[in-house]
Nucleic acid binder design. Structure first.
Lengths: 126, 126
DNA sequence: GCTTGAGCTGGAGTGCACTCCAGCCCGTAA
DNA sequence: TTACGGGCTGGAGTGCACTCCAGCTCAAGC
């Protein structure tokens, strides 16, 4: 798969794909005769996973560390598991935070509706 | 309340408090005779609310817009409510995303545990 | 065989949200 | 009365995560 196709299918820009390779998030893919990157299909799954870690707040440095451990093979299973467990904890914390704020938004919206009704009434009375 | 006390009680650094004032997130507080900021108690509640918007992913520009609307009074109730409703939708989206990834973390952790057991067995067999 | 377009590299630039700094003033304690 | 700590301002600097650019090569189509 050429870089332009991977870009379309992954949703990452071409520049970001090369950037991710440079910082070690994506393994350098094989090149064709002209020196152009030729990605394996499997990279798509990995990118989707990276996206999920990213979207749920894992820091770049940690994603890079995970990628490096992954490249080192079975010897790093325990360490990778520990990282995901840590991230799981962080996600749970953020879930609670979001739920709390969701409830707050609902209360505030209801409050504003009430205030708008008040304002409406006053306006009507004039 | 002096800025150092507000810093301690709000968890924001003194620099951040002044920065927030500069960009319009916090109203300029009255000054004492020496020209030093003297914050009202009420600012703490506002900062906590800002924190919550921040922690749940609202952009600086939007928080500033909300702060400006708030300063304009009752005429902006509807607009403020619309902003919070939009943010509520965004929070709900992120909740779903986090839940999905939480489940993924659990699956992956279980997977790694299984792999570690395998590795353990092999090592034992040698 | 020349134009076009995709891809390449190294490095500079961007936007966000702070964070730090120099050099100043002022009020209180020794 | 002077030393100190806290506060002030405007502006420069930081870290993160990209994003853009100049100037190059190469392959394929007309």
């Amino acid at each position: 798969m050429k870089i332009s196709e991977l870009s379309k299918r992954s949703g990452l820009s071409i520049d970001t794909l090369r950037f991710y390779e440079k910082i070690g998030l994506i393994e350098p893919p094989p090149r064709d005769d002209a020196g152009r990157r030729d990605y394996p299909e499997a990279v798509l799954g990995w990118i989707r996973f990276l996206d999920q870690l990213n979207a749920t707040g894992m820091k770049q440095a940690d994603r890079i560390r995970y990628a490096r451990l992954r490249a080192e093979g079975p010897a790093t299973y325990a360490e990778r598991r520990a990282m995901l467990e840590t991230h799981r904890t962080e996600i749970a914390r953020r879930l609670a935070e979001l739920e709390e704020t969701l409830a707050l938004m609902d209360r505030k919206v209801a409050h504003y509706r009430a205030l708008e009704d008040e304002t409406q009434k006053e306006t009507t009375n004039v």
